[in-house]
């Protein structure tokens, strides 16, 4: 499987797609759609919204195709479009109100929030996808962009219009939550110690 950033499209195909060749456009769509949608799904938990943003991204790709200069891989250029669309959505006033409520939950330290299912016991396999989806939207975006897509804290802070400290704190928060998923034995140990305390 190819990461979106690594996808290359032949120049000839791009030229024909720019010229309006429908077959060439279909080929470009087929080559990039799976990776683009996968990235958007990682950043946006809501599937319906992810599909909308995917449509936006692909339409913008075709509209701006003549502007692609080939200085970077085509996939990197498309990734930038996809990330921008997702972040614009997350920064929208409507969504910002939701984020505010979720950040308040974080501030209260409630990691038994409605988005976080009770961690499975040690013996079961952990679903990384579910763990990622359980994160608050901002933390999810930050951890994915930093750990997987390779963006720096400065770039991520720039996307959100915030400081580098904001990006670092969101990353730390995401790691903390993911650790609770991946290492639930810590939780069990805590319960055991309480029980043992109770017994003694």
């Amino acid at each position: 499987m190819t990461k979106l950033v690594e996808i290359e499209i032949p120049e000839d195909l791009l030229r024909r797609a720019c010229a309006g060749d429908v077959a060439a456009q279909a080929a470009v769509y087929t080559a990039t759609a799976p990776a683009a949608f996968a990235l958007i799904r990682r950043l946006i938990a809501n599937r319906a919204m992810a599909e909308d943003l995917f449509q936006d991204t692909m339409m913008t790709m075709f509209q701006c195709l003549p502007e692609f200069r080939g200085e970077a891989p085509f996939g990197a250029w498309l990734r930038q479009i996809a990330v921008s669309k997702c972040l614009m959505y997350l920064r929208s006033p409507w969504h910002r109100a939701r984020l505010h409520l979720e950040s308040n939950d974080d501030a209260e330290g409630t990691y038994g929030s409605s988005t976080l299912v009770t961690p499975a016991p040690v013996a079961e396999c952990f679903d990384v996808t579910k763990a990622l989806a359980s994160l608050p939207p901002t933390a999810r975006v930050v951890v994915w962009l930093y750990e997987v897509e390779g963006y720096t804290h400065g770039e991520i802070a720039g996307f959100f219009g915030r400081s580098v400290s904001f990006s670092k704190s969101q990353l730390a928060r995401a790691h903390l939550r993911l650790r609770e998923w991946f290492e639930p034995s810590r939780g069990e140990e805590t319960c055991t110690s309480i029980q043992s305390n109770g017994r003694t």
Binding site: M1, T2, K3, L4, Q25, A26, Y29, T30, A33, P34, A35, A36, F37, A38, R41, R42, E51, F54, V128, T129, L132, V143, W144, E147, V148, H175, L178, R179, F182, E183
Partner: peptide
């Protein structure tokens, strides 16, 4: 632990079936 988490995230599929065709 941090690297472990990052490794798990990177192991997720980079492609997924697109929601609809051309």
């Amino acid at each position: 632990q941090r690297q472990n988490i990052a490794r798990r995230l990177r192991s997720l599929p980079q492609e997924t079936r697109q929601p609809y065709d051309w």
